[in-house]
Amino acid sequence: MHDVTLTINGERRTVALDARTTLLDALRDHLGLTGTKKGCDHGQCGACTILVDGRRINACLTLAVMHDGDTVTTVEGLGTPDDLHPMQAAFVAHDGFQCGYCTPGQIMSAVGMVGEVAKGWPSHASASLNGKPELTEAEIAERMSGNLCRCSAYPNIVAAISAAAKDTEASS
């Protein structure tokens, strides 16, 4: 067993874990944070997407011990029912879900993705590799293609992300 210390949603927490425990299982089974979902446990569906040091990753594809000292944000830390993060509010406003199981991953992925665009990272859908990409629907769809939604609420998911990104841009 190894002691792993993480700053999760602003709170410093230490847990003793088997070295083979994924970050996802650490969150769900050891830290009581079940908002992050397990869809495929293979890094292929995106339901477990969280932010580590501000970057989006699949929590099922990384071991918790690799993140000793890291800062982790899960959907529970993004906003609360009384104080939603703009991305969460946009998903509510645009009905960006049906069964809801992929939703935490979609939202965390979207927040991370908007950050990547702000840093000027291009995608397969970007017209140019230089300069800040414009967050068109095609850009959003391409950059969110690692997050599956079997209910296929995609039109509303894309609309929600688009609206939230515009709001963020307008207020920054």
Partner: peptide
Amino acid sequence: HDSAIKHVTGGAVYID
């Protein structure tokens, strides 16, 4: 949707 806020905050409880 009645569970909208729960879905976006991770508060909706599935069996697991």
